[in-house]
Design a protein around this nucleic acid. Structure first.
Length: 571
RNA sequence: GGGCCUGUAGCUCAGUUGGUUAGAGCAGAGCGCUCAUAACGCUUUGGUCGUAGGUUCGAGUCCUACCGGGCCUACCA
């Protein structure tokens, strides 16, 4: 039994996430966590909301709520949705927790003690009307290079020239529209990532088994231009972790907070501490996952994230961990994902384009979405959601191949033998042949999951379902029942056992359907199979079962067309 | 501008260190079955592997150029 720590990138607090966000980290992480638990490993699966930063403050203002109140409400919304999608986090934390506040301040203090923090005086744009400093992209004006009148302070979208806010002609705040802006001197802390460049580079170079997507992004940042740059880790905001040096005040930093990207990854650790607190456990309970001097030396730690998160997880956060000089657990494997597009374009939160998590659950059960998303997870390149593909995939795989298998077997048995596993005869050549095929495919499925090749694993699982239908075609119990009822009994007994077996193997991907199958088979034996023969004999003759309701209703053409229209844009 | 990823059947994708006739699922065609959600099974039609060169006994795989798609480029997170 291994100990496996899994973290999913933490979703930002300002609204409901779309399916592209879900499939880019939380969902594949969940399938992996479920698989690893099923294999009897000790798993700690952590997620949280990322609550700090300017967008949260603005979203709260727009909602007319204090930011803390807004975040608390949105945390509950996101928590309910993650429950709705059956995301099996051991804890779903909040980056605004006191645990994270203390840990973030602790890390900053350690980094300062190690000489890895320097104070930098820089010029920032202050908006009097908004009463705040403005991040570069919240300032718009006319591009001095091309004359485009909606160029942002960080870059002109029209000519792609990189800009400073002070370069813009006629700059104004995108929040209030005010032109009453002023450049002010302000002091900030920078993390001296450049001082750790060689150490980080050596570490990344050693990770030869990581996805190319992960390492190529890290190497780009390490080697581009003058190499890895220092990074500001504080902001002039109200909402965030107050800047402190450990538990001491930090002279000159009064009223400032840490930058979200500094405290967000630390929340992985803090959320595990929150988990311990919530379960009435002491500090050693979470430290054994995170401190290599307190039991975490045998932990395997995996992170799941979209590609946009890679620089922070391969460089900034490791710099924080390494720079602390304390024995914190470093990540062992980073699985990164490309993007999911929506029907020829991108999902867009601002335009309301695509399907959002709350809408998805209001239309169809979680398993439908989980199955489609996990069979199309963008592991190698961006992938695309279309309603036609979704309908075809779900109807064929879930309704026809799996659902109908359960239906035909249980209904046939009920009509010929009653609602009990039939007695008589013994498994023969046909059953052995199926078990041989399944054993091969199960091994492939397990290997793919261990390597986090989710798509390939789903393909094997589907093939295992198909094997059940092939088996029925070969043995034809509806025919043998007329001449040799005992042969039909063997077939049905084996097929009923396949249903339980499918429930166990399918659980990482479609947990609700899996539970329904177990319930219909009236068993709670969900042990992962090690001996195929034994696993397919778990339900003995005489064992009672029930015929389940239709497990997966099909998506009709009319419903598909209606949904395609409804989600085309403007939420 | 720079960097990275990507282009394989109508669609979605596999193709391990270059090695016989390039695979799967869906869609299409034909046949079979009738227990089942008009479900299932079998067979089968589709590809000069983005284009043009090159290396090699041999290239989907390696190199170069070009074309198309995408991402990143450090103050959104």
């Amino acid at each position: 039994m291994a100990r496996i720590l899994i973290t999913s990138a933490i979703p930002y607090i300002n609204g409901i996430k779309h399916l592209g966000n879900l499939v880019g980290s939380q969902l594949p992480a969940d399938a992996y966590a479920r698989f690893m638990r099923a294999r009897c490993n000790e798993v700690m699966f952590i997620c949280a909301t990322d609550e700090h930063g300017t967008p949260a403050e603005l979203a709260a203002a727009k909602a007319g709520q204090p930011v803390a109140e807004y975040c608390a409400a949105m945390w509950q919304v996101q928590k309910d949705l993650s429950d709705g999608f059956r995301l099996s986090f051991d804890h779903f934390g909040r980056s605004s927790s006191l645990r994270n506040r203390a840990l973030t301040q602790h890390f900053a203090g350690r980094l300062a003690d190690a000489g890895l923090i320097r104070e930098v005086s820089e010029k920032q744009v202050y908006s009097h009307a908004d009463g705040r400093f403005l991040p570069d992209r919240y300032i718009e004006g006319t591009c001095p290079n091309c004359g485009y009148d909606r160029a942002r302070g960080d870059q002109c979208e029209n000519c792609t020239k990189q800009l400073d806010p002070t370069d813009l002609l006629n700059p104004h705040s995108t929040i209030s529209g005010s032109t009453d802006l002023e450049v002010r001197e302000t002091k900030h802390l920078h993390l001296r990532q450049s001082a750790m460049r060689d150490k980080l580079s050596t570490w990344i170079e050693s990770k030869t088994d990581w996805p190319i997507l992960t390492t190529s992004i890290a190497k780009k940042w390490l080697n581009d231009g003058d190499g890895l740059q220092d990074r500001g880790i504080t902001r002039d905001l109200d909402w965030g972790v107050p800047v402190k040096r450990g538990d001491q005040e930090w002279p000159g930093m009064e009223g400032k907070v840490f930058y979200v990207w500094f405290d967000a990854p630390i929340e992985y650790i803090a959320a595990t501490a929150e988990w311990a607190d919530a379960n009435g456990l002491d500090d050693s309970a979470w430290q054994r996952w995170w401190r290599t001097d307190m039991g975490a030396d045998d932990v395997r730690y995996l992170q799941f994230m979209g590609k946009d998160n890679v620089p922070f997880h391969t460089l900034s956060f490791p710099a924080t961990i390494m720079g602390s000089g304390e024995p914190w657990k470093l990540v062992d494997y980073i699985k990164s994902f490309n993007y999911l597009n929506y029907d020829g374009g991108q999902f867009s939160t601002s335009l309301g384009r695509g399907v959002f998590m709350d809408q998805a659950l209001s239309i169809l059960p979680a398993d439908y979405w989980r199955w489609w998303l996990l069979t199309h997870v963008p592991e190698n390149s961006d992938s695309e959601f279309t309603w036609e593909n979704f309908q075809a995939s779900v109807n064929k795989d879930l309704a026809d191949v799996l659902g109908n298998f359960v239906s035909r077997v249980t209904k046939f048995c009920r009509s010929k033998f009653g609602e009990v596993v039939p007695d008589g005869g013994a498994y023969g050549a046909a059953e052995q042949a199926v078990m041989a095929e399944i054993a091969t495919r199960l091994a492939a499925y397990e290997t793919h999951m261990e390597l986090i090749e989710i798509r390939k694993a789903t393909a094997e699982l589907r093939a295992i379902w198909v094997a059940g239908n092939e088996y029925l075609q070969v043995t034809q119990p509806w025919a043998t029942f007329k001449t040799n009822p005992e042969a039909a009994a063997v077939t049905v007994r084996f097929a009923l056992n396949l249903i339980r077996f499918y429930a166990v193997l399918s659980q990482p991907f479609i947990p609700d359907a899996s539970a329904d199958m177990l319930s219909a088979m009236q068993t709670d034996d969900d042990a992962w199979p090690t001996d195929i023969n034994a696993a397919l004999s778990a339900l003995p003759a005489g064992h009672a079962f029930t015929v389940p309701e239709v497990m997966f209703a099909k998506i009709t053409d009319e419903a598909r067309e209606e949904m395609a229209t409804r989600f085309a844009g403007k939420r």
